[in-house]
């Protein structure tokens, strides 16, 4: 089932066209990453979905019902953190949550899941950047929404908090919650997202699964042998593509190549001392996609 559907979204600020025919659907229970360079329009797309910003044309549907700038009743089951957390500094973290929570049990749950117990009864104005960010995330998650929209949620979080958040998002997605997450921290998105939407200058240039995205990247085999020079000429003669000789780096174009290369070396009495297999890397594939695409 589609929980979110955006079609032909167009938006300009004055004469500047910021979103161009943005269309995508999100299936229930998936984690979708929204990536793209600064100013590509990620926050703007999110604001349009949330009825925070008005657009010139396009349709946005949440759980099958149209939602718009003026009428966004379907957003009842949506939680969001956009750009930076909106907090009342004169309220404690607890009161900030209680203000929007439908029950105290919901507040307690999200506070313990994000490990905020030690400071939740202090005023939010005294929080550090990371604590504010966590409170902002907690506000988005507090009522167990069906759809959660997070704009750069990892900003300012320490490694433990990043892991807590990742675990929580995965657990909630397992229970059917859908996530739309923009992030600059690609290594984090790589661990989290099922699907990826890549935008550049207000256009979607790629909407694929994370798996497919990673597969676009070349896989490498990096070898350290008893005789790198002999190994090098051996694999080159056998028709493999070598991209570097020190350390010996070979492009893997088929999945059974590792076995073939290893047996080739051992047949020629070259000992393999160390072996590394480089999987596809989101950063590399993304930069390639962005560079290829001419907008």
């Amino acid at each position: 089932m589609k929980i979110l559907s955006v079609s032909n979204l167009n938006q300009s600020f004055g004469s500047r066209h910021v979103l161009n025919d943005i269309s995508f659907d999100i299936k229930s229970g998936t984690i979708v990453g929204l990536v793209g360079p600064n100013g590509a329009g990620k926050s703007t797309i999110m604001k349009d979905i949330l009825g925070l910003s008005d657009y010139q044309s396009g349709t946005i549907t949440v759980a099958g019902t149209n939602t718009s700038f003026q009428d966004h009743r379907p957003l009842k089951q949506v939680g969001a953190l956009i750009e930076y957390p909106g907090l009342y500094p004169f309220l404690t973290g607890w009161d900030n949550l209680k203000l929007f929570a439908t029950s105290t049990a919901n507040v307690e749950k999200v506070v313990s899941e994000l490990h905020m117990n030690s400071y939740i009864k202090k005023r939010a104005g005294h929080y550090s950047l990371g604590m504010k960010q966590k409170l902002g995330i907690a506000l988005a998650l507090v009522n167990e929404p069906d759809l959660v929209i997070l704009d750069e949620p990892m900003n300012g979080l320490d490694p433990q908090s990043v892991k807590d958040l990742r675990d929580l998002i995965k657990q909630m997605a397992g229970n059917g919650t859908t996530f739309l997450i923009s992030s600059h921290i690609l290594s984090e998105l790589e661990k989290l997202a099922d699907d990826l939407i890549v935008i550049k200058q207000g256009r979607i240039i790629q909407h694929t699964s994370m798996k497919e995205m990673l597969n676009r990247d070349s896989h490498f085999i990096i070898l350290k042998t008893s005789d790198d020079r002999a190994a090098n000429s051996l694999v080159v003669n056998a028709g493999y593509q070598v991209t570097a000789s020190q350390p010996l780096t070979i492009i893997e174009s088929e999945s059974d190549e590792v076995a073939k290369i290893l047996s080739l070396l051992s047949e020629n009495n070259i000992e393999v001392i160390d072996f590394q297999h480089n999987e596809g890397n989101l950063e590399h594939s993304l930069l390639t996609v962005l560079a290829e695409e001419k907008v």
């Binding site: 925070l52 966004h72 750009e83 957390p85 909106g86 907090l87």
Partner: peptide
């Protein structure tokens, strides 16, 4: 105040109309 603290986003994105 809501614009100053950014809390206007939390107020507006829920089901309530402006």
């Amino acid at each position: 105040m809501e614009f100053q603290y950014g809390t206007i986003k939390n107020l507006l994105y829920r089901e309530y109309s402006r």
